[in-house]
Amino acid sequence: MTGYIIKRLLSAIPVLLGISVIVFLIMAMIPGDPATAILGSYATPENVEKLNRDLGLDQGLVPRYFIWLGNMLQGDFGRSFALNRPVLDEVLDRFGATLILAGTSFVLCSLLGIAAGVISAARQYGVADKAITFVVLLGISIPSFFLGMMMILIFAVQLKWFPVSGMWPIYGDRSLWVLMDHLTMPAIALAVVATGVIARLARSAMLEVLRQDFIRTARAKGVHERRVIWRHALRAAMVSIIPILGIQAGFVLSGAVYIEIVFQWPGVGRMLVDAILKRDILLVQGGVVFIAACYVMFNIMVDVAQALLDPRIKT
């Protein structure tokens, strides 16, 4: 298993390099002078000159890439001109909030989605199946940002169950309880779409598995139906569900951008949108590379989980 993990980690290196190349090339598409774009039109010529030199913008595309890559590997993602602080510091500060939001949502959508899918498959064409199918259809059709707004309207403004927005109250203590209070609505709003997608795929994976011969064997052994469904069938179905969880993690991370805006959540997504609107190019660039790298690492974890689950995968 250790060998497998090392192999997967090594295979991530070209992917990470590829990601950096893609981000670099996209940023190279910036029309006009990048230093002016970064510093804004009121920058002094001296500053523009200096930034051009620092970033190697006066050189060709290839040396520029390697300067940028070398800096990043040393932990220097550049400096945000709008916030006047190192990009990495800002990203790391914001990343924790995103991780809490997206992580909670991911756990939520995995558990609920799989449970709904399994129940739906076990009661195929029954009332529960039809109800779940309908809710799922609604869930995957509603844009998360609209859902978030409606939740604020109903549960925060009308019913006053949860705070309208933010991660922490402006004044007051920062306990776990307070965090949960603020986290509930955005985490649910973010989880809904992914829950629906996972539920659908889990349902069809389960239906596929339930027709297999080893399910009949389990029943012939006298294994209780509950166990047949939740152990035998689900275990086998997980082999096709886990890769979907990996993909959905990417969608949850993406959806976090909208949810962070709607709920004023101080995460990287909101930071990126603000940075784009302020033309804070280096912050966008650094943030994108950082999150993409985290996502690649997450997918390696998914692969490892898959290998742990399925002994047939050569380790």
């Binding site: 590829g18 990601i19 981000v23 996209i26 990417g250 993406s254 940075a275 966008v284 660039q285």
Partner: peptide, 24 residues
Amino acid sequence: RGVDMLMAFPYILLALAIVAALGP
């Protein structure tokens, strides 16, 4: 390989990067 690289991004990051470069 290139396609796989692009798929390694959560989709919105790529979209945001492109919009950041080209402007809203």
